[in-house]
Structure formats: C-alpha cells, structure tokens
C-alpha cells in the first residue's frame, strides 16, 4: 500500500489517493451547496428572539394534535369493529350499521381510494419585480380554495389537501402566507387530491373559471400548477370533532323560521 517513504512510485500512488479523496469531498461539497441553495425558498425567513419559544410551542401543539387525531382514528376504528358485532336483533343491527357506514363514508370519516386526480400548487420561482407584492407569488389559501371549488364543480366526490380531508366543517385559511386546513398547518407544496370519475380532469381543465384561475395565477405570477392522474388516489379519513353544541337533530322543517301559516 502507499506510504510516505518518498520512493517515486509510492509517491505517485500517494498523490493519487489524496487527490481522489479531495475530489470526492469537493463533489459532496458541491452537492450540499446546491441542495442548500435549492432548499432556500422565496418565502421570507424570520429570525427574532421571541420566535424561538413560539416555534417550540407551535411544534409541541402540532405534535399533540397529531397524537389526538391518531387516538381518535384508533378509537373510531374500534367502535366500528364493535358495532359490527353488536348484540340485538340481527336485522335492526344490520340496518343501523349500514346507515352508519353510509353516513361515515358520506361525511368523510372513512379513508377511501379510487379513481381521481391530484393537483399540486407550488410557489412561483419568478424573480419578484421591485415594488411588487411578494404574497402574489406564493400559494395562498384562496388558491387552495379555488382548486377545491373547481374540483367540486367538476364533479369530484371527495377531496383532501395534503393529509386533511375536506368535510362539511372544513375551513381553509391563511396564516402568514401559509395555509391551515382543518386547523392543521400544512407545509407547501399543496397537493389537492380528489376522487371522481375519469372525466374529472377533462371537465375541470375545460371549465372557463379554472382556465381563468390558471391565467390569473400561473401566467401572471408563475404559481406552479401541476397535475397527476395516478391509477389510484387515496384520501385520508377526517380526524376531527363531530361535536355539535348548538345544532340538534330536528324533525323536517321549512329551511327558515318563516312565519307560521
């Protein structure tokens, strides 16, 4: 093997070894520098003294939320299993269980998969001109809401954004240029997944309102909108509260408290 004894042949070999090492190291360095530059998004990064504890609190609360959601999903699965083996009149139990299954499917409480479409929204990579509003170049909650809207209008049967199912109680909001869905903080890029017929893509991309959205956001500001049509789209179950404190099941009523006849 190589040594530092100074014999010409050995020296040549020795030099080759450190050159190879250095080359490899520089290559890795190059990759890291490139990765570092790429991971720097156009979103502003803040640094201040007060942010540290707040970030820690937010991360802690988000971890708690994830744990609570998992706990809820586990308990719901156990309840569903127990209900399937309930005692009582077989016909009555079956009828209620069928009703429960349909209500849970309809409400978004069951993870499902089927044919569909995934639309991804990413921030613009365009250079923001001086004086321009940098929020125009980022994906906003309004963009996510528009895509969800267009999917519903095109006939989607179920929709989710990243890991959050869009349900009857779902709000999609901005928090400082990022997006909350079901009060869960979602990191970009935003993937809106929808289940529907195989026509979904054609119907949506042909809709004038969607074309207008693409023109207003992708063409004007460089918001990146991409599509995927996987053979199978999977949507998660909603892991949130169904608790109603004000609304009570009621006999069929006219839709508003109009004066009694």
């Amino acid at each position: 093997m190589s040594s530092a004894t100074g014999r010409p042949a050995d020296r040549r070999f020795h030099v080759a070894t450190w050159q190879v090492t250095l080359t490899v190291a520089l290559l890795v360095l190059g990759f890291l520098v490139a990765a570092q530059l790429q991971s720097e998004t156009p979103r502003t990064s803040y640094t201040s003294q007060e942010r540290g504890p707040l970030v820690q609190t937010a991360l802690g609360l988000q971890a708690q939320q994830d744990a609570l959601k998992q706990q809820l999903l586990d308990m719901r699965a156990r309840i569903q299993a127990l209900e399937g083996t309930s005692q009582g009149s077989a016909a009555a139990v079956k009828s209620i269980n069928d009703g429960l299954q349909a209500a849970r499917m309809g409400g978004g409480l069951v993870a499902i998969h089927g044919s569909g479409l995934v639309i991804q929204l990413e921030d613009s990579t365009k250079t923001i001109p001086p004086g321009a509003n940098d929020t125009d170049y980022r994906v906003s909650a309004a963009d996510v809401r528009t895509v969800v809207r267009e999917l519903w209008l095109a006939g989607a049967e179920a929709v989710a954004v990243n890991g959050e199912r869009v349900t009857v109680s779902t709000a999609i909001l901005d928090i400082g240029g990022s997006v909350l869905v079901n009060s869960a903080y979602l990191a970009p890029p935003y993937q809106v997944s929808a289940i529907g017929s195989t026509d979904l893509y054609g119907t949506m991309t042909g809709a004038p309102s969607f074309v207008e959205f693409v023109r207003a956001r992708a063409e004007a500001f460089g918001i990146q909108i991409s599509f995927a049509r996987p053979s199978d789209v999977a949507l998660p179950a909603f892991a949130g509260s169904l608790n109603l404190r004000y609304a009570r099941p009621a006999p069929p009523l006219p839709p508003s408290p109009s004066p009694a006849p």
Binding site: L54, L59, S178, Y185
Partner: peptide, 14 residues
C-alpha cells in the same frame, strides 16, 4: 415544517 416563514404575530395566531 415551514414555521420558519412565519412572523411572531403569525406564530401567535397559529
């Protein structure tokens, strides 16, 4: 997590 893009006020809201 993307939290680095939030200001102190945004973090309080979150």
């Amino acid at each position: 997590t993307g939290l680095e893009t939030l200001s102190a006020q945004d973090l309080s809201d979150l």
